[in-house]
Amino acid sequence: MQGSSLANRRAGQAVMAETLRIHDGDPPRSWWRRLVGASPLSADSRPWFQGALGEIAVGRILGRLGPEWTVLHAVPVGAGVSDIDHVLIGPAGVFTLNTKNHAGREIWVGERAILVGGHKQHYLTHARHEAARAGKRLGAAVGEPVSVTPVLVLIKPKQLTIKQRPADVKVVTDRELLPWLKRRRPVLAPEQIARIAAAAVVPGTWHNNPAPSEDPAALQERFTELRSSVGRAQRRRGLWGLGLIVGGSAAAVSYGSDLLTALLNAGLS
């Protein structure tokens, strides 16, 4: 059964599911909106869509870690619908990764706060809470303390200003993530890694009442279809914009001299 192991879950699975749930409830685009390339995403579904893209991108990066690492995605935790974006277990330790897709935005990082476009976010608090939660649940499952390092991954920021790095949360960009992980020294023995990883893939380790999830492959296929639709709409908007530029330039060339003469005559009269 696919839901019996968290190892089957895809990067961004929970966010993909929420994106599609919201999108399914949105009214369909009119023929005119489709013609001009209006996005199929609504104001409600767009943030979830961007979040899913961020987690998928980080999932691809984590896929380049060696076989000595166990990588879990979209881990349901607690009693509700909360999940941890990524959980890593390997020689360098245990990590919870919180992914934030703010591509093209300016981000400021201080010891106690993170600002995105000048607005304060509670990312550091959430990252600490996730790591503490993971450590408590994994420790209970293996019968010994498990130290978990919180990591905040920022996707393609336009500008990242580090005023002062937080002491207890590692803040990295997507480009920095893999080199940072590979540079870390080993702290866990192989038998410790195996014991923690065996507990981590069990849904009941994390969630009070784990439920079977949607088939990951089917969910990813539906999200890929939506992503293709978003891409087609974007390309269509680009073609319309290019057409307007070309048309405007041609009109300026054809009628520019006549228009200038008319304006001069109007000014002299």
Rank of each mutant, 00 (worst) to 15 (best):
V253S: 07
K170G: 07
A141P: 01
A262C: 07
T99F: 05
H86V: 04
H126Q: 15
W48L: 15
Q220D: 15
L138A: 05
V15D: 08
L72S: 07
V87T: 01
A217D: 15
P157M: 03
S147N: 08
T161D: 13
I245P: 04
G243Q: 01
V246C: 10
G256Q: 00
A92T: 08
V187R: 09
W32C: 01
P179H: 02
A194K: 08
V109I: 14
K156L: 11
A14T: 09
R105I: 01
I196H: 09
F223G: 04
E214T: 09
N208G: 13
R29T: 11
V246A: 15
G241W: 07
V75Y: 03
Q234N: 12
A17N: 06
L259N: 09
Y123K: 00
L160S: 02
L88T: 04
Q121I: 02
P212V: 06
L260A: 14
R185P: 06
L35P: 08
G238F: 07
V253H: 07
T149R: 14
D26R: 11
G51Q: 04
R235N: 11
G80I: 07
Y123T: 00
P186F: 01
E106K: 14
V153Q: 01
M16R: 07
P40K: 00
A79L: 11
A79E: 14
R46T: 14
A57M: 05
A38Q: 10
R175F: 15
A218E: 13
G143T: 03
Q121L: 09
V187H: 02
Q220T: 15
K170D: 13
P179W: 04
V81W: 12
V246P: 08
R175G: 10
I61G: 05
N265D: 13
L124N: 03
A52S: 03
P212I: 02
A198H: 05
G12V: 03
A218N: 04
T161H: 12
Q159L: 15
I107S: 08
L178F: 06
A103L: 05
A167C: 02
S228H: 14
V116N: 09
D83M: 06
R232T: 13
R236S: 02
G12L: 04
V71Y: 03
A113Y: 10
V187F: 01
